[in-house]
Nucleic acid binder design. Structure first.
Lengths: 338, 338
DNA sequence: TTGTATGCGTTATCAC
DNA sequence: GTGATAACGCATACAA
């Protein structure tokens, strides 16, 4: 029965609604000490709870922002969301997280739903398939920040990691350890981050005079990875090093290696592009390219808030962060003697 | 500028607001075909988007429910939330997830915020520290379902797993493999699920004529676990088997074992109480007690929906699900010969 | 310092 | 079949 309203409080306290409203918005400056007290008592007595909806309707501001994550199963997404929430929490803004599940239809639905609910802005890990929708938001000057994936055609604040360079670095690490048969597995090349990772891979190979073997470079859906690996490791010359394009790819790779009895790093050197909860404690520990999720989330939040507040209105830009290669056991000690 | 409103559409179509409203709510039964067409065109032309806020204010129903998770870092929480979201999605109800971070203050804040936003109901993984708040919601007949933790004093729908029996089962599994020095580590005993796990542990020991060694039973905060383990494994008789009370405990345990070079299962048998992303692929694979997260989430959602719809108003009850012990390598092959 | 009137964008109740 | 009109709960000029 949260049906006790401001009018009830006003009546109980013997004042008008406006005065109660003043009180709630902490404009006590010109309020009689006595009035204030009576309102306080009335609120306590009736157990009054303000109705945010009504307030938002009037103010045209919900103090809520939305985060649309491409796939909540990635640890990176979780970390970024967490960081964004923390930031907005300090500004008394509520963040609500939706999972598009890598599905453009769901993404569209969530964008529309959140906008219908009048959220003040959106941080999106775009699937990249709803260009028209993205464009309309930008054209309307609706506050938006894109995360993790760049959409070329769009003029919008975007946060990303230097995918190409980071991948280059990892592949170079393999090459310097003596590897020549280096594989990369990613999900389909539908978004910039994956495309850039492939570019970094190719660049690293060519810069070190290694020819690209198409059998070693696969971009397929997660459920298809194991069969793709099966082909790859049935080749007469199978890879000696492998970069997993993200954490979900890695899980598939590990499952495959376990089943086939392929040992890391003895039989295969391994690196994963992403943050992982167990990279430091698995056996062996796993070399990883880490994205600064916390900083990236914070930056996205700052940019969005600026747009919402219409302060520091900079022209939309890309903000690129650096990935860090954490070398662990999975990429060491490969036996070239064999 | 999503400022195009129903009035604009009405004017554009040359009809009244009421008629537009009818149209939007799909009550075309008594509507002229021509009118309908004109409204459609007007909406398309102006790019009208309905305002959910205004609708909710009027209807006293937001078609939104809240999930307050104790700690989003647990995989179990994620799985349950996902299941709840899926269920409500089918009923065109939006679920928003908040993370209390095991912090009663945050929990309170979120409950109040969500209620102020007029969400239609709440599914809570309670910290257990806001009893008065829980009571007030129940007394007001506000739709609530509790998850994972029972609060004795409260008469409310509650979903949980049979913690005691599941733990008993796991400990028995250790005992039958010949173990006598069996440890259990949990976070502090502030909630029913942890208390019940300890009860199951004690019961299993006593039923098998093993005496309880207090050095083997520790309930401490996550950051204190490693030092506690350090003490435990410095004992003259250190444990030969260990049950990690949840997934976060396990991560600490694994980190400790790795540092100390203690090998599983050779030096120590290991079981974890919880769902884990990598239990089946780690080296060794990890024996786990699995909670049926999907079913539990679904049940919680069903109960909440019934409360919201005021249908099937059953008296609040506990719904207990069964944990399943998945035996893997980490609890096999301990060498008792040494 | 406090009260009155009006509007935010919908939906609901009736007339017409 | 369609259209006034009054809510929903709050905030905000402006008056008093």
């Amino acid at each position: 029965m949260a049906k006790v309203t401001m009018a009830d409080v006003a009546k109980e306290a013997g004042v008008s609604k406006s005065t109660v409203s003043q009180y709630l918005n902490k404009r006590y400056e010109y309020m009689g000490h006595d009035t204030k007290k009576r309102i306080e008592e009335a609120i306590a007595k009736l157990g009054y709870q303000p109705n945010f909806l009504a307030r938002s309707l009037k103010q045209k501001r919900t103090s809520t922002i939305g985060i649309i994550v491409a796939n909540i199963m990635h640890r990176f997404s979780t970390e970024v969301s967490r960081s964004i929430e923390d930031f907005f929490h300090e500004h008394d803004i509520h963040a609500i997280v939706c999972n598009a599940d890598d599905n453009p239809k769901k993404e569209k639905k969530y964008i529309e739903m959140l906008r219908a609910k009048q959220v003040d802005g959106l941080i999106i890990f775009p699937t990249g398939k709803n260009i028209a929708l993205y464009e309309s938001m930008i054209k309307e000057n609706y506050p938006v920040v894109f995360m993790d994936r760049k959409i070329e055609e769009l003029n919008v604040d975007t946060i990303a990691v230097n995918n190409k360079e980071s991948t280059y670095h990892a592949i170079k690490h393999f090459i310097e350890a003596g590897h020549e048969q280096i594989a990369l597995i990613t999900p389909p090349l539908t978004i910039s981050s994956r495309i850039e990772r492939v570019e970094g891979y190719k660049q690293a190979l060519s810069d070190h005079n290694l020819t690209l073997n198409p059998d070693y470079l696969k971009s397929v859906e997660i459920p298809a990875i194991q069969s793709e690996l099966d082909k790859m490791f049935s080749l007469s010359k199978s890879p000696t090093a492998l970069l997993a394009g993200n954490d979900l790819v890695l899980l598939e790779v590990l499952a495959f290696l376990k089943e086939k009895g392929i040992k890391v790093p003895r039989d295969l050197s391994l690196i994963v592009f992403d943050n992982l909860s167990f990279a430091h404690i698995s056996e062996p520990t796993i070399t990883a390219i880490i994205q600064p999720a916390y900083e990236m989330g914070k930056k996205a939040a700052e940019l969005l808030l600026a747009q919402i507040m219409k302060e520091n209105v900079t022209t939309p830009t890309e903000h690129i962060f650096e990935g860090r290669l954490i070398v662990r056991k999975s990429s060491e000690g490969y036996l070239f003697s064999k």
